[in-house]
Design a protein around this nucleic acid. Structure first.
Lengths: 174, 174
DNA sequence: CACAACTAGTTGCGGGCGCAACTGTTGGCG
DNA sequence: CGCCAACAGTTGCGCCCGCAACTAGTTGTG
């Protein structure tokens, strides 16, 4: 029953059954639900590991990594928020936590008294390096090792459509 | 063809630059970061819409949909937790909220006094239908419309590897 | 039967998250 | 110059989430 449905799928990819309950074609459901499910599983595991080993959340690591890669090792909170897709309020609080742990410092911006430079220090840099080392290995094992190169390329292409922001990141140079 | 690349990739797919900062190859970064980023964007938007229009979170809709599709329109909380990948405590509280809104009822299980049947009622069914209708249309517009059939198939295949649980869901019959 | 091991569900707690309201600063425009 | 809109950042709040501790009922074993 899914054969013809799949062909029609692009034009109309969800329907309702005899009880009025909506559902997708199988491939569509697997793709969407799979995305949610896979994200849930992977981030739960990776975040837990990161927290246990380095006391950092995924978001904390992301901000720290961006600072580490930034010019002068510093960025404005608004820049960080824009780059990471987090709200400014969240960034403010995460930086607050990192500051308490003496991993970053806040310096008020000389050219704009409203603004703040969050600057990563040597302790922060050291932590980023060790956290990234173990984290990247985990992502490799949990994610990339389950995929072949073609699949990785497809994912990169597909997700690039949704998250143009993502590419210009810690790797940046390119 | 991909044999060698894949072999190399498997051996070492991330490196450190001259400053000791770790990074992946571009395609790897785009795939992984893109997954995180895409999920963040889509779920934020969809969840906000769902909440605004129907007062349901994504998780709430999932539970309600599972109940609607279940035999007797009822399930044990533990079953729901297992099927949805949520913790039992979360399921308990979400069902609590739905119960307050008179969308589901708790019935203690006749054959096991510890257990509870969460049962969706007519109001719940009506809400599921209308919520799914708009939600599915949104997912279609925000997600599937950006993909072609081959990409959807690849995603379904890839994510199926991580989330075996996902396939046997609301569509279930298959 | 009695006792231990296990299971279903509930609840206290802490953490992540964004929105909205607020302070202080800046910059444009009359 | 004075004023107001826009902006950077902070903080109160409420939601979502899981873990751990707890209650209560079940099952297996001597």
């Amino acid at each position: 029953m899914t054969e013809n449905a799949a062909a029609k799928a692009h034009a109309c990819s969800y329907e309702t059954d005899e009880h009025g309950l909506a559902h997708w074609t199988e491939a569509h459901a697997d793709a969407w639900i799979g995305l949610l499910e896979t994200h849930k599983q992977l981030t739960r595991a990776l975040d837990a590991e990161l927290t246990a080993q380095h006391g950092l959340s995924l978001s904390g690591l992301e901000l720290l990594a961006r600072l580490a890669a930034a010019d002068q090792r510093q960025m404005h909170l608004t820049q960080l928020a824009g780059a990471s897709g987090l709200s400014l309020s969240r960034v403010s609080r995460i930086i607050g936590g990192l500051e308490e742990r003496k991993l970053v410092e806040r310096h008020s911006c000389p050219s704009d008294a409203r603004a703040v430079h969050a600057q990563i220090n040597d302790a922060g840099l050291a932590l980023v390096r060790s956290a990234q080392a173990t984290h990247f290995a985990s992502v490799q094992a949990a994610f990339f090792d389950q995929l072949d190169e073609n699949e990785i390329a497809t994912l990169a292409c597909v997700f690039g459509r949704f998250a143009p922001r993502a590419s210009g990141r810690c790797d940046a140079g390119a």
